[in-house]
Design a binder for these strands. Structure first.
Lengths: 235, 235
DNA sequence: GCTACTATTATCCAAACGTATAAAAGAAAG
DNA sequence: CTTTCTTTTATACGTTTGGATAATAGTAGC
C-alpha cells in the first residue's frame, strides 16, 4: 500500500539553504503565519519531517532565515562598490541610488523584513544580529561620507550617517509598500538630492555624470542577484 | 456543575473598542501570531465567543484594528499643531520634532505597524486605508513646507515632502527598533537638522527658540495620549 | 554486490487554532 | 414581578499547527 515517494539525498548545506530560502519566500509573500513547517517543506520540495532533521525546532529555522537575510543585506552593502570609480562623490551616489532600486526596493523585501520584527525585538540573539547589520550598513555609509572633500568632525559624521541612512530607509519603506505612488527613478532622484542636501554635496549631478555600466547602475553584483532570488517576482 | 462566570453588559461601541485595543496590544507585543481570538478575548476581559458577536470573522476584527491604528495616526498629524504658533518655520519644527519622540517613536508602535504589513499588501481595502493615511500625513507635511518663506513650485514641493517624510519615517524606524543606540533627543535633533537642510531652512534654531509648553514640545494633545495608551508600557 | 549508515519519508500525537451553536444571565420594558 | 430581548458564556467541532517516532530507501565504503 505504501507508494513511498522517491527522493535524492542532498548535501547538508544545500538542504539547509533550500529550507531557509523557502521560509524566507513564504514570510515575504504571506507573513510569518504563512511560513508553517508544512508549507516550508512543500516549497523546498521535501516532507515536513525533514525540517526537524536539520533544525531542532521551527524557531531555529526561523532564526537561521533571519540571519541569512541580514547576511545578504550586509554583503550587498559590502560588495556594491566593487569596481566602482574612486571618486568619493560618485561612490556615494552609486551607493545611495542602488539602495533605492529593485531588488532592494521591493514589496516582498519589506514584507520579509517586517515578518521578523517581533522575533528580533524579543530574541536577544536576533537583536544582536540586527544591530550588527544595521551598524555595518551605517558604517559603510559613514566611511563614504568621510571620504568626501569636506571638513567634518566625528560627531558630525555620525549625525550625517544616521540622517543619510534614515533617508534611504524611509524612501525604501515608502517605495516598497506603495510602489505605484512614485514614478520610475523618482525615489533614486529624491534620495540623491536629499542626501546631497544633508551633506552639502551635489550627488544628483555626480550620478548623472557617470557612464552607464558602472557597478550599481546597470550590472548588479552577484550578491544582489541572490537577494533578488530571495524576493523574486515581486508584486 | 456550571459555575457560570458573572459579567456586565456593555454598550456595543465600548466592547468593539476594547476588542480592537486588545488585538492591537497583542500584535504590538507578540506579532500577528500572538493575536489569537482566545488571547484577544482574555485581554479584553471577555470569552472568545463574544468576538463573533461583534465581528463576523477574525479577519474583520483584524481589519478594524488596522483602520483604528491608521485613524489614530491621522488624527495625530491633524491635531498636533492645534494651538501652535503661527510662524511657519516653528510649526514645521514642532511637527518634525513631535514625530520623532515617544509615543510615536516606540518599539511596540513599530511592531504594531509591521504586524499589519502583509494584510495591507494583500487586502485591497486595507491597502486603500494605508495609502490614504500616508498621503494625508504627507500632505500635511507638504502644506507646512509650502507655507515656508521661500519660492517653490509644485513639483519641488512634492519632492521635498516625500524626502522630509522619508527622513521622519527612517528615523522613526531606527529609533524605535534600536532605541538604546541614540541619545535622548538625538533623533529629534538629527531630524530637524536634516529636514532643515533639505528645505534650506534652519529648523533646529527655530525649535531652540521656542518657549516650553508649546504644543508638541511638552504637553501632548489628547490624541497622542490615546496613541500612547495603545502602545503603552514600551520595552 | 553486500553492508552499514543516515537522509528522508510516513505516520501519529496532543495542543491550539478559528468557527459554529446552544444555553444562560444581565438589563430594560411592561 | 414577570416577560422579553440580546449580550455573553459555555461547549463542541473539524482543521491545522509544531513536534515525536518508526519505517524506508538512497548512497557510500568495503
Amino acid at each position: 500500500m505504501a507508494d513511498r515517494r522517491t527522493y535524492r539525498r542532498e548535501p547538508e548545506e544545500k538542504r539547509r539553504e533550500a529550507l531557509i530560502a523557502a521560509a524566507q519566500e513564504l514570510v515575504a509573500e504571506g507573513g510569518p503565519k504563512a511560513a508553517t513547517v508544512r508549507a516550508i517543506a512543500e516549497r523546498a520540495g521535501v516532507t515536513a519531517g525533514l525540517i526537524r532533521h536539520y533544525f531542532s525546532t521551527k524557531d531555529e529555522l526561523s532564526q537561521a532565515a533571519y540571519r541569512a537575510l541580514m547576511d545578504h543585506m550586509t554583503d550587498f552593502g559590502a560588495h556594491l562598490l566593487d569596481g566602482a570609480p574612486a571618486d568619493p562623490v560618485s561612490r556615494l551616489a552609486i551607493f545611495v541610488a542602488a539602495s533605492l532600486r529593485p531588488p532592494v526596493v521591493d514589496g516582498k523585501a519589506v514584507g520579509l523584513w517586517a515578518g521578523f520584527i517581533h522575533q528580533v525585538r524579543s530574541d536577544p540573539a536576533l537583536r544582536a544580529v540586527h544591530e550588527a547589520s544595521y551598524l555595518r550598513f551605517r558604517d559603510t555609509l559613514q566611511a563614504l561620507i568621510a571620504d568626501l572633500p569636506r571638513d567634518a568632525d566625528a560627531a558630525r559624521l555620525r549625525r550625517e550617517a544616521i540622517a543619510s541612512n534614515a533617508v534611504i530607509d524611509g524612501l525604501w519603506l515608502e517605495g516598497s509598500v506603495l510602489p505605484e505612488m512614485f514614478a520610475p527613478g523618482e525615489l533614486e532622484q529624491i534620495g540623491l538630492t536629499s542626501v546631497g542636501a544633508i551633506l552639502g554635496v551635489d550627488l544628483a549631478a555626480a550620478m548623472a555624470a557617470l557612464p552607464t555600466g558602472v557597478p550599481g547602475t546597470i550590472a548588479a553584483p552577484a550578491i544582489v542577484q541572490r537577494l533578488a532570488d530571495t524576493v523574486k517576482d515581486s508584486a
